[in-house]
């Protein structure tokens, strides 16, 4: 698939990793030298979206979610336990995700999180918002470069 569709970077689709890298990396690289608070704000604003999207098709436990975010962002987005779990519990409290203890054979029990129907609606909304935002940034920055 050509690296042409902006939507592709939001999906967990290995074929679009190049796009993901390209599209995210550019603003990151461009903004790397700007002061840290902006970076933190971006991370904070996208964190909910990231968590919701990662549990959209499959229930996952907390460590798995934070590791996936780390891996798929190539280390760009990292959450430590102090910032990740409060966020996770906040989403659970709002009813967007639901946690459940699961005991699998031969393993310790873990708390798995899945997307609720309310969460699906929120995810859809947030994706659209992010798409508009990124498009807007892209238009401005491309116009400047042109």
């Amino acid at each position: 698939m050509p690296c042409g569709s902006l939507k592709a970077f939001l999906r967990i689709d290995p074929a679009n990793l190049c796009l993901t890298f390209t599209r995210i990396a550019v603003p990151y690289v461009a903004m790397k030298h700007i002061a840290a608070p902006v970076d933190r704000e971006l991370k904070k604003g996208s964190a909910e979206l990231l968590i919701l999207s990662l549990v959209e098709h499959r229930a996952r436990h907390g460590y798995e979610i934070s590791k996936l975010i780390d891996e798929r962002s190539d280390g760009v987005l990292k959450f430590n336990v102090a910032s990740f779990y409060p966020l996770l519990y906040r989403l659970e409290k709002r009813g967007w995700i639901a946690g459940r203890w699961v005991e699998k054979a031969g393993q310790r029990r873990r708390r798995y999180y899945r997307l609720t129907s309310d969460g699906k609606q929120i995810l859809k909304t947030q994706r659209a918002t992010w798409l508009d935002f990124v498009n807007a940034i892209h238009r401005i920055t491309e116009a400047e470069n042109a």
Binding site: V81, A82, S83, Y85, P86, R90, K93
Partner: peptide, 19 residues
């Protein structure tokens, strides 16, 4: 490193709001 993450106060302040 992990202990520092745990004790930097962000965990408690973050959890207070949601628990």
């Amino acid at each position: 490193s992990l202990l520092q993450e745990l004790n930097d106060g962000a965990l408690v302040s973050g959890l207070k709001a949601s628990l």
